[in-house]
Structures are given as C-alpha cells and as structure tokens.
Amino acid sequence: MATRVLSRQEMKIDCEDDVLLVRRRVQMLAQQRGFDPFATAALTTATSELTRNVWIHAGRGQAVVEEIAEGGRCGIRVQFRDEGPGIADIERALRGGYSTAGSLGLGLSGSRRLVDHLNIESAPGRGTVVTILKWARLR
C-alpha cells in the first residue's frame, strides 16, 4: 500500500536541549493526530530514549520527524541518524534486559516494545540509523 508523507521536519541533535525539542515536537504531532494518551506517551518516550542514545553515544546526529498516511490511517515516523561508534551486535542490543536499566539496552529494547515498528541499521564505525513508526489507534 502506498505510504504518503504528509509532513517532514529535520531536527539536529547535539545538546541535551535538543533531546527535549525533538520529544516535544513528536508529542505535539501525536496529540494533533489524535493519538490517545497511552499511545502518545509510548511514542514520545521511545523518541526520548532514542534521541538520548544519539546524544550520549554519538554526541551529535539528526532526527527526521514525519507524519505519514497509509490506507486511511495516520502514523508518525521518526528516524534517528548518527555517525557515532555504531552497534556491533544489534540482536543483543535489541534483546536488552530488565537489569540494564538506563543503558542503551533498555533504550532500544524498551523502545521497540513501545512502537509498532523499529528498524536498526548499524555497523561498528559506520554510525547508526534507527527508524520507529507508530500508528494512531482507531478510537
């Protein structure tokens, strides 16, 4: 099914304030697009985790925030890009764990549980691109 991009905004991430700015932007869009409080909190929290990952592990990067439509439903897609150290074992990072609170592990594995899709492209020394997508639930 064809996916259409309704809006697109690129935001820089290179200080802690940017973590908040990206998160607020996503939160605002989710509310505007009719996400319920639970879905809004889930998407915003995942955004917060992943933006913070960029800032902490790579120092700087980018977030691309998009509103998308596909077959009558709306969603928000956020892509986090950095040129940092990258992730060697993506599978392991995604498994995360209850004990690695606050580490990259929980950020990634936790985020995956909060959104409908999470995709990672990364290799050591080649940077990381994480894309998340959440659909507005029909209410």
């Binding site: 409080p37 909190a41 889930a42 929290t45 209850y98 936790g110 909060l114």
Partner: peptide, 15 residues
C-alpha cells in the same frame, strides 16, 4: 504517577 506513564514504564520492562 499518571496511567500512561505507568503503562509505558512497565511495557519497557522497568521495575
């Protein structure tokens, strides 16, 4: 704690 916050934290596996 708000309901959505509690749901999000448990979903992430935070105890």
């Amino acid at each position: 704690m708000r309901p959505a916050v509690a749901a999000t934290l448990t979903r992430m596996g935070f105890v």
